[in-house]
Design a protein around this nucleic acid. Sequence first.
DNA 1: GTTCTAGAAC
DNA 2: GTTCTAGAAC
Length: 196
Amino acid sequence: MSKRAVENVEDCSTKQAAKRNKHWSLGLVESMKDPEVIYKETKSIVVIKDKYPKAMIHYLILPHEEISSIYKLNKTHLNLLNEFGSMFNLIKEEHDSELRAGFHAVPSMQRLHMHVISTDMNSPSLKTKVHWNSFTTSFFISYEELIKKLTEDGYIQKISNDTHKILMSLPLKCNQCSFEPKNMPQLKQHLLSHIK
DNA sequence: GTTCTAGAAC
DNA sequence: GTTCTAGAAC
């Protein structure tokens, strides 16, 4: 989280808390309680529909347990993460589309959450280069990759600010072919050609 | 995370 | 002149 964002979170405990507003970064924790957006729920995890889906199918899997991000994970969480994997398999069984599961290297929202997203990337809420690169570059840490890192290292290493900037600045490239669009509108138009 | 919009890019 | 991107939001 940026210095500015930290200041804003702190600000919530004062001015904004007085107005009973919650900081935007707590949005997922709020959504988890909303029956309208809950897709599935077990004793330990919840699956919700992403409020601003970046593909035709886009869910989030979150634990009830208060884990703020992937950077709080250790080997004791492997059982919980195994449930994430089982849930991902279950969701895949219920859909015809190709689905990917993974985590953002620098999450914006609090509460550990795993994206389950279809590869079409066809959605009105997909608007910016940051959106695109956060799902199609190594900024997206696949489920398998996260399990591997956690098993081997016992924790998830943070990426540097420089690496973050570089990944978000990478030129646009189609996730399904070698096409390199010159801007977002061109990419979005191109993605339609991959839809059956 | 989104919204809004100034000004860069075209 | 219009399209598009990128940074502030108290």
